[in-house]
Simulated scan of single mutants.
Amino acid sequence: MTLQQLLGIELPIIQAPMAGVQGSALAVAVCEAGGLGSLPCAMLDADAMRRELAAIRAQTSKPFNVNFFCHTPPEPDAAREAGWRAALAPYYAELQIDAGAIPPGPARLPFGAGAAEVLEAFRPDVVSFHFGLPASDLLARVRGWGARILSSATTVDEACWLEAHGADAVIAQGLEAGGHRGHFLSDDLAAQAGTFALLPQIVRAVKIPVIAAGGIADARGVAAAMALGAAGVQVGTAYLLCPEATTGAVHRAALKSGAARVTALTNLFTGRPARGIVNRIMRELGPLDAAVPAFPLAAAAVAPLRARGESLGSGDFSPLWAGQNTSGCREVPAAVLTRELAAGLAAAR
C-alpha cells in the first residue's frame, strides 16, 4: 500500500506540524494542494483546538493530520528552576524584567483523555505523535474512529518500537530537522543520524511506510528521499515564510538573513533539544545545558525575555526554529510550494 492510499491523499507530501508558527490556515492550504496538512495541538487548550479543527473542517474535505506530544510531565524541581533563573538574571536586569513576577508552569501538554474527547467529535483521518506514542488505551481510542497513526523515530530502534506498538507509518527524523527532536528511547544525540543515513536503515528494518524528514527543502530533496526508499516526505522549514504561516516578524527576518545558515540543537528554550538559528542566548550560555529544567518547564523563565526582546525587534531570546537547510524558504503560497516539492516525485520514478 502506498502512503497516498494509506492516508487518502493525492501527494505524499506532509507539511510538518510546527507549534507556535502556524494554525489551521497553513494546514488547509497544503490539504487543498493535494498534500497532508498538519495542525500542531501541543500548545492548544481544548477550546482553541475545537476552533482550529472546526476551521479546517469548514475549509477542506481532504484528510488532514493533527499532532501531539507524548512526553511524561516532569515533577517541578525548585532548586533547578532557581539555578536556571539565576543564569538568566543578567538578562532580566538588562531588559528590566521583574524575575519575581514570572509565573511557573509548562506551556506544552501531552496527549490525554481530554484531547481525545475533542478529537472524537472531528475524527481526523491522521493523528501523529512526537516523543513516542500515547498509552495503549488512548491509542485504541484514536484508532477506533479509523485514524491512521504516525510518529517520529530518530533511530532504527525507535522505528522498530513504533512499528511494534501500532504505528501505521514512521517518520524518519534526521538530525538536520528543525524544531524538537522526536527521540524517546534514548536522549543520546550521538546515536542520531542525518536523514539520508537514517532513512535507508529504517526502510530496511520495518515493513510499514517510512516518511523522510529533515533537510528536505525542494524537489531535488524529495527525489533523493524517494530514491532511498521513502514512501513520502515531511517538510517544515520551507513553509515558514509562506503567507499562511503565522511565523513572527523577528523569526521571518532571521530566516531571510545570513544567520539562517547556522543552526544548532538547543535545550535552552524548552528543556529538550530542538534545532534553531543560533542567536545571542545560545552563543552566550551555550546551546545545550544539563542544568536547564526538564521539558517543558524551562520555557516559563525564558518567555518574558522573548516577549520583551521581540517587542524591541530582537530575536536574541527567541526560539528561531529552523532546520539546517533553509534554502527552500520563500514567500510563496503554501499550495505553490507543495506542488513544487511534488515535482520531485516524477524525478524519482
Rank of each mutant, 00 (worst) to 15 (best):
V127G: 03
P76S: 11
D45A: 11
L228M: 15
W84Y: 15
L312M: 14
D218F: 05
G179R: 02
G344N: 08
R349C: 04
L138E: 10
C329Q: 03
A190H: 12
E331Q: 13
P134H: 04
A260K: 02
V126L: 05
V222C: 11
S152W: 00
V336F: 06
V170S: 03
R204L: 04
N267W: 02
I14L: 15
I102L: 05
L11G: 03
S186Y: 08
S151T: 05
M43A: 13
T2F: 00
L109W: 14
G258C: 03
G229M: 07
V278F: 02
V127S: 05
W161A: 11
A212T: 09
E331Y: 01
V262S: 12
A116H: 02
V170K: 01
L95D: 01
A342H: 13
V21E: 10
D45N: 15
A335T: 10
A274S: 13
R272V: 10
G182V: 07
V21S: 12
F317Q: 04
A46E: 15
L119I: 07
L150R: 09
Q324A: 14
L345A: 08
E244Q: 09
M1P: 07
V30R: 10
A299Q: 14
P304F: 07
T195Y: 08
A260I: 02
I14M: 13
G328H: 05
A303F: 06
V210Q: 06
I208Q: 00
G271R: 00
L11W: 06
D77V: 08
L44S: 11
Q5T: 14
F196T: 00
F196V: 01
L119W: 05
C31L: 12
A48P: 01
T72R: 15
T326S: 08
C242M: 04
P287I: 07
V126G: 03
G215E: 09
C160I: 14
H183P: 00
H180M: 05
F111V: 09
I281V: 15
G182W: 09
D168Y: 10
T72I: 14
P17D: 11
A299T: 12
L240S: 14
R51F: 07
P73V: 10
V292R: 03
A82D: 14
A294G: 03
A260Y: 05
P73L: 13
D77K: 11
T60C: 11
E310V: 12
C70T: 15
A301D: 07
A193M: 14
V66Y: 11
A347E: 13
C31F: 09
C242T: 15
T247H: 03
L26R: 05
A259I: 01
F64D: 08
A115D: 14
A227S: 14
A205P: 04
A307S: 13
R280D: 06
A205Q: 02
